[in-house]
Design a protein around this nucleic acid. Structure first.
Lengths: 226, 226
DNA sequence: ACCTGAACACCGTTCAAGT
DNA sequence: ACCTGAACACCGTTCAAGT
């Protein structure tokens, strides 16, 4: 949230990694992953590509850092929930909303397996899984399942946003088209998808997402010795 | 198809879409997504980039087609399982193994939301969800949850393979490094991940994957009126 | 109908040179 | 220490010209 006063020579103040990350987030929000270019970044920061490379190792490094900034921001609020189940839902919804607002985060998350952004999420989930009373030996599988499910939805979300952007459609028109395609599938080969076509347009992404979380949590609880 | 005389210059036989897709799969298997280049493709097919564009709309089209070829191949075997639960597990494992063998499929799947490769998987899962006795109104959420979970694991798998390739490490060394990083995390902030670090190296990806499927299926069954 | 290959418009990254 | 901007190696895509 700074100015970009231009006095004309060099830079009065040295560039910071944080400035670069914020500019990257802005570009990504504005025009998705293809919008993040060293060219566009240079222009936005009124500098050359070389200057950026002084603070950032690579484009992938920058993307992960931008992703981590969003994840950190998202998980920073820690309301204490009544039950671990509720806490897991809250974490999941917070992430869902963040990824909905910044679809590129969905893809960026998976570019950095085992890296900080993912670890932060894994940790949060794992702590709640423990609180659920799941024995240590099974907590890994349970937390991983939750993480992978969230990542799957995140990826889909990112992909949908990208496709919609490329085709220049907003969400409802996009769903309409997919729905139309699905309705024309062969009735014998695709009975389920055909009947699902009708539900596509009306459905609530976040609600479906939460339904999946509930399936998982209830399955995890059922599997744990009580 | 049938031309006989071999006159020798140019191409004796016209290029086919299938040939191009097979060449693409070969490149992708050999060197991952960055390996799929129109340059490399041209060389492999002994032609120019323009020729390829006659049969294929774009790189993304080609990637989706290659992905679909693998998915189709994977789902082509339809052994009749005793129960829907078993069938879901079988489908999931088949996909897991295919994505393990062709990690780029994991990423490619999510590039094409609502497209054929994903629809094929969705359909298979949906049919089994129906067979499980889940009412139509909830079948959508159930099938979506399964699909998203599988996609999440697939994405992770793709990302891991990519990272391992970039760093030039094989799997065990890679896990070692991640495990080492996790062990050094702050003990107060990351208790769960730290303790999970030890399990990272020994764990069985496919087993964990199936555990997640089981959580979901059991949650889905529990939610359905019996 | 289908192929050829040069040309175009980018893009990430590097680096010698500056301050 | 940090910035500048030209240069490099590459990439997807197009297209006039050929057969």
């Amino acid at each position: 949230m700074e100015k970009k006063s231009t006095t004309g020579q060099r830079r009065e103040q040295s560039l910071t990694r944080e400035q670069i990350i914020n500019a990257a987030i802005q570009l990504l929000d504005d025009s998705g992953e293809p919008g993040l270019t060293f060219q566009a970044l240079s222009k936005l920061l009124a500098t050359g590509p070389g200057a950026i490379y002084w603070h950032v190792a690579s484009k992938s490094d920058l993307l992960t850092a931008a992703c981590d900034a969003i994840v950190t921001r998202t998980l920073s609020t820690t309301p204490v929930e009544a039950t671990p189940e509720a806490a897991i839902s809250t974490i999941a919804v917070e992430l869902f909303d963040a990824i909905d607002a910044h679809p590129w985060v969905g893809a960026a998350l998976t570019y950095a397996p085992g890296q900080l952004p993912m670890v932060r999420i894994f940790e949060r989930l794992g702590q709640q899984v423990r609180a659920l009373g799941v024995p240590e030996s099974e907590a890994w599988a349970a937390a991983s399942a939750l993480l992978n499910y969230i990542l799957g939805v995140a990826c889909q979300n990112a992909a949908n946003a990208k496709l919609a952007r490329v085709h220049g459609l907003e969400r409802s028109r996009f769903l309409e088209e997919v729905s139309a395609t699905w309705s024309q599938l062969d009735a014998n080969e695709y009975p389920f998808t055909r009947s699902a076509a009708g539900q596509l347009q009306g459905h609530d992404d976040q609600k479906d997402f939460l339904a999946g979380i509930d399936f998982l949590v209830s399955g995890i609880i059922a599997a744990a010795p009580r």
